[in-house]
Nucleic acid binder design. Structure first.
Lengths: 212, 212
DNA sequence: CGGACAAACTAACGCTTGTTAGTATCACGG
DNA sequence: CCGTGATACTAACAAGCGTTAGTTTGTCCG
């Protein structure tokens, strides 16, 4: 109806929200610019007044989600006193990670599953951003080992396992789905602690059967 | 060159292998029938001598991978004596799960990330198949609790966390990438045991800040 | 009132998509 | 040696893709 700007509408933001939902539920490649435009309530060509390409929309969403996650985690850790134990730092880190992935599951799913839609430059930048979380967690685990409060099965694999466990929350968590964010975060904090604290768990090995 | 059947070639199998690689690395929607055909060495139209649609190729690969995983796990569990402890059953289950996801990472990634390319019927069937693994693991954990050897933080969330931790191995594991399958499987078995065995881990809670 | 700007519109571009129809080529059984 | 069946080929289809150009509309400033 209104071919000019509707005040306060902020079309770019509406585009972001619409594309986010479509990308998260249908996938980036399976979503067309015309679908996004229809969800916004404009024509496909008008999208190019706000984003220079389809890839730029994905890039904007992906990067924004990761930067938000980083900020979310860094402020959580920054709230801790300087002499905080590794154990408490781990709790904060896991809590923040799980909360974010539960409450921003669509954005997280884009980061984790639609990265292949990005061009090489943007892809690499996302991979780099994600690596900072691995390094952050690895640092906390190292601290704990040095303190004597953690005993790891394997440092690199513990990082992978813990991080992926948290990230995967975005795959199944639904608001109002019977589980509160608090419950999930509390449980995952406890699980992560169990994974790094060295009560000598009975590690049993099957007879292995083949490849290296 | 040879417009008729090349003996022993088994074109359908070559299609499966080519499509698997393309789907896993580029994504289902981003892969065209012409790309698959080129990888096989035939024309796009010829694919329809072996599969009735693009979706059927995805369906074939997805279903095949899940059925193989099920068989893999069931034979591992079937090898155990009838009176096996829950702890040993957990070890076998995790070991089999991790091995499969490490050694079949492309197939696993299709199952986990390209499901949205399936039609509704096939999608539901895949979800159903996946649920059987959750139930299997939940059963093992329940047994352990009943035996007194496991003490869970939360039964449902433990299942999710453990399973997703194993599944995620397919996201990063590369054959010949410095880590052997045996190492990874051993470590993950140990981690899973830690997650379910009730050395009272120090569970700390942050002050929560908002949504339910 | 008038000119500038932002943001919407319409219409089309060149290409690619999954899929189909019709045809040609080979191996093999009778 | 011929007929059958499987499998490949070529060519085309309608539809949809991301993107662009040119135009219209509305708002705001001077």
């Amino acid at each position: 109806m209104s071919p000019a700007s509707a005040p306060g509408a902020d079309t770019a933001e509406v585009i972001r929200r619409s594309a986010l939902k479509l990308f998260a539920h249908e996938g980036y490649e399976a979503t067309s610019m015309r679908e996004i435009a229809a969800a916004v309530g404009i024509q496909a060509g008008s999208l190019y007044n706000h984003f220079s390409s389809k890839e730029e929309i994905l890039w904007d969403l992906t990067r924004g989600a990761l930067l938000d996650l980083r900020e979310h985690i860094d402020t959580a850790l920054a709230r801790l006193p300087a002499d905080t134990s590794a154990s408490a730092k781990l709790s904060s880190f896991i809590d923040a990670h799980v909360r974010f992935h539960a409450l921003n599951s669509e954005r997280a799913r884009i980061v984790n599953q639609q990265m292949s839609g990005l061009n090489r430059t943007h892809y690499r930048e996302i991979v780099g951003l994600r690596r900072t979380f691995e390094e952050q967690l690895a640092g906390i685990l190292d601290d704990g080992v040095r303190e004597g409060s953690f005993s790891l099965v394997d440092s690199r694999l513990s990082v992978y396992a813990i991080l992926q466990m948290c990230i995967a929350v975005s795959n199944w968590f639904r608001k109002g789905g019977g589980l509160s964010v608090d419950e999930v975060a509390t449980t995952y904090v406890a699980l992560a602690h169990r994974m790094v604290i060295g009560s000598p768990a009975p590690v049993r090995r099957r007879r292995s059967g083949g490849t290296s």
